[in-house]
Every structure is written in C-alpha cells, then in structure tokens.
Amino acid sequence: MATGGRRGAAAAPLLVAVAALLLGAAGHLYPGEVCPGMDIRNNLTRLHELENCSVIEGHLQILLMFKTRPEDFRDLSFPKLIMITDYLLLFRVYGLESLKDLFPNLTVIRGSRLFFNYALVIFEMVHLKELGLYNLMNITRGSVRIEKNNELCYLATIDWSRILDSVEDNYIVLNKDDNEECGDICPGTAKGKTNCPATVINGQFVERCWTHSHCQKVCPTICKSHGCTAEGLCCHSECLGNCSQPDDPTKCVACRNFYLDGRCVETCPPPYYHFQDWRCVNFSFCQDLHHKCKNSRRQGCHQYVIHNNKCIPECPSGYTMNSSNLLCTPCLGPCPKVCHLLEGEKTIDSVTSAQELRGCTVINGSLIINIRGGNNLAAELEANLGLIEEISGYLKIRRSYALVSLSFFRKLRLIRGETLEIGNYSFYALDNQNLRQLWDWSKHNLTITQGKLFFHYNPKLCLSEIHKMEEVSGTKGRQERNDIALKTNGDQASCENELLKFSYIRTSFDKI
C-alpha cells in the first residue's frame, strides 16, 4: 500500500482533458527560462521544448504516446526543470519506465491550478516501474492521483506527508504495488545497510526511497516546507523545498512566496507586481503582455491589467481597466465587458449561442446573426445582446428569417469595421425574408467608422429604411451602385405612401 494514499474509496472516473512563447529569463536562482504550460502528445517531438525550461508557468501534460519505446527515452533528460506552477499529468506514455532521468531536479509542483483537485496525476502508464522524482520536495496545493499503472512499484516507500501538507485526498490505487509483488529495495538494503531515512506512518517504520538508488530526502521537522541542505541544516524561511546553503534567500532552489532578481522575498516591493503567484514583474512586463494579447485571437491570451499590486489576466467583477495605466478602477454604474472572439468572429444561430455573449459591452471581433427560429426570440436576444455598444469588426445579418427588427441591439452605437466582410463591408444584410426595420432612427444613433453597407434580398425592408441608415451611420456616399439592390429590397412591402385627393359631386333626387 502506498504510504499516505487512500484505498478502496469510491472515486469519480478520471477524465483526461485534452506555445513556446518565453516569458522571460528567471535569473540567477533558476538555471534556465520560464516556459508556458505545455500539452505534449502523440510523439516526442515537442518534448524537446523543455530543454531550457527551469519553470513551467502553467501545467505540463505528457500523454497518448503509443509508439514510443524505452530506448526512445534513454537520452532524454531535462535537468534544468525545477518547478511547475500548476500540475504534472502523465497518461498512456508507452515505453517510459521512470522519471528519474527525465526530470531529475523537479523540486516543486505548486498546484496553482489543479487537474480535478490533483497536482500530480500518473494514470495508465503501462510501462512505468517507478516514479523516480527523487528531488520532489513540495506539492504546495492539491493532491496526488496514481492509478492503474500495472508495473509501478516504489510507492509504499514514499512518505507523501513530507511532500504535501495533507495526504487525506491522495488516491493511489490499482498499481502493481497493490499486489505486494514489488519487493522494493532501498539503497544499501541488499548489503544489509540502512542508507535512507525511515519514518513512521500508520504504525509502520519504513525506509523512504524513490528507487533502488535514490533515497527520499527527509528534512528535520523544524525546517517545515522550506527544505534543508545535504547536511540537514534548514533553508531560509522564504525558500521552498530545498537550498544549497542554509538561511540564505539567494540560495533557495525555489521560493515559498515570490522570486525577485535572484532572491526569494515575502512580497513584491514597489515598483514590482505579483505575477502568477510566484514571481515579481515590473510595469513594462505587464504592459507588454497586455499589448501582445490586445489584437491576438490565441486562446488563453489575456490583456493583463494591474489590481491590488498584482498583474492579473482581467479586472475583477465591479472594476474596469483604465487604459492609460492598466489599473483596475471601480465602475460607475454597470461595468464594461470586452469579449474577445477566439477566431475573430462568432455566429449567433440560437439563443444558446447568444447567451455566451451575455453582459458583453464591447465585441472584439465580428458578429454573424443567422437565426431561423426560436421561442420568445426578441426578448431572449435583447437579454443577451442588448448591452453590446461596440463591435470592432463587422455585423452580418444573414438568412435570419425569424427577425423582424434589429432593435434587440438596443445599445449598439459603434461598428468600427477594423475587419470587413469580403474585404469591403462593415454591415452586411443578406436574404432576411421578414426583416422590416433596422432601428427606430428617431431614437437610435449608430456610427460606422469604416467599410460599406450591403443589402440584398431583404424583400420587406424598404429602401427608405436603408437610406436612413446611410445618413445616420455616416456611410452615405461610400456605397457603390450594386451594394444596395434596388429590386430585391422592399419588393414585397408597401414602401411608397402617396396622399390621394378626392373630389365629389353631391346629387339628390331633384338636383344634379
């Protein structure tokens, strides 16, 4: 039985969820670079991206490699990797027998973001014989899940209580170790020597080791999670996991709180800001991140802002960003909400898709409305799209047979046209069989910064309504002859009103 693990408890099935942008060198404390989270699957090609990484700022997932063999891993080693800020997950990587050479110096898994409450997941690794993470000293947050690894031993010899604050939620089941077939031998045991430290858990006094050649490092209890030197002297209180010299914040392997210019500090002093819960960055760093993602459509890219001495992905609820200094300031009234469309555009074809934009005031991208039916549609669209004030790209209304009016965009005031449909149009209306009105132009103002209007096959939309939009939106004169079809717009509506004058002759039985 794995020490510190839980057996036999019912657990939810383990679901495996399925960018080499360097964020800056980590400095003297770390020998390499800070790398983003990685999802490495199918083959070993991307694994080489770990070569210079000291910190993975995010998670590391290595999974679904069915053609790899043990010899493929023999020359692979990433000794610079010290810390993973989120979680480490391995799933069905064939041929991998140990992690001792792959990650010989991995010391800390912070667990800032977890995989279903777990910071370390080893699942269905069919050839893994031992973990071998002999320098792993601290899992700051989260638990361990090690399950269905039929060859995995050296679990009962690990004292997880020396690595985690609590072992109650560890789930370590259905491994070879369960069948008591392992016969784990710690260093020196074969020669009758006791080389590794022994600890007591559940009444068992057991030597602690990761492999037959690597003991588990056990520091004096007084050192807590700070770690200790090879001689057993406690590291500085700002260290986490390990250090090369005692009581020196510049000799830590990793930091308990924050890293700044080669030393570990309790908090980031001005003019620095907390970033990702582990390091200090200056304003320029946060500003660069903001600008890199301002026009990016890459998933996970955030326009970072500053709030409460932190550089964070977005302002919290009730705050909006001051564009001059990136500071989050309290909103006066309802907060603006910028919604970034991942692929640059979004099609609204149902109430469900409209709900995804609920509360958005600025759309960074283009909207395509293609709704053919739905219950209580006008009210639903207004509830979900009615706060949109600005669209950076274009607005396209296409084959939306259920629409009679666009009044559900009740606050839309600006279409920038930074991206144009077919390279020309910022407003595009095609084949809307029941569209009769755009907006009530006596109450609604709309500016279209650039781009043209396109109207074709809107049989109940009168040309007068379209011409009014040209005047109000500032697009009059931009359109070419064929942009607004004269014969297919309003051709099934009563669009022309003329005053009919009647004269009559009164007659009676005795007068003409």
Rank of each mutant, 00 (worst) to 15 (best):
L29I: 15
E33L: 11
E33Q: 11
C35S: 00
P36Q: 05
N42I: 02
E49G: 06
N52W: 08
V55F: 06
G58F: 00
H59C: 14
L63P: 00
R69P: 05
P70V: 14
E71Q: 09
F73S: 06
F73L: 14
F78V: 04
K80C: 05
M83L: 11
M83P: 00
L96N: 00
S98C: 06
L99V: 10
L99F: 05
F103V: 05
L106K: 00
I109L: 07
R110G: 11
E124H: 05
H127V: 03
E130H: 09
Y134D: 06
N135A: 09
N135H: 08
L136S: 00
L136M: 03
E147V: 11
L155I: 09
T157I: 03
T157N: 04
D159W: 14
W160A: 00
R162G: 06
R162T: 06
I163E: 01
D165H: 05
D165N: 04
Y171R: 00
L174C: 12
C182A: 05
C186T: 01
K191Y: 14
C196G: 02
P197F: 06
A198V: 04
T199K: 05
V200R: 02
N202R: 05
F205I: 03
E207T: 15
C209E: 01
C209N: 01
H212C: 06
C219L: 01
S225N: 13
S225I: 12
G227F: 03
T229H: 08
T229Y: 10
S237K: 02
G241V: 06
P246Q: 04
D247F: 07
P249C: 07
V253G: 07
C255P: 00
N257Q: 12
T267E: 08
P271E: 03
H274A: 14
Q276E: 10
D277E: 12
W278N: 03
F283N: 15
L289W: 05
H291C: 13
H291M: 08
Q303R: 06
Q303S: 08
I306M: 05
N309Q: 13
N309P: 05
C315S: 01
P316V: 07
P316E: 15
P316T: 03
T320G: 14
S324A: 04
C328N: 00
T329N: 08
P330V: 13
L332V: 15
G333N: 11
C335E: 04
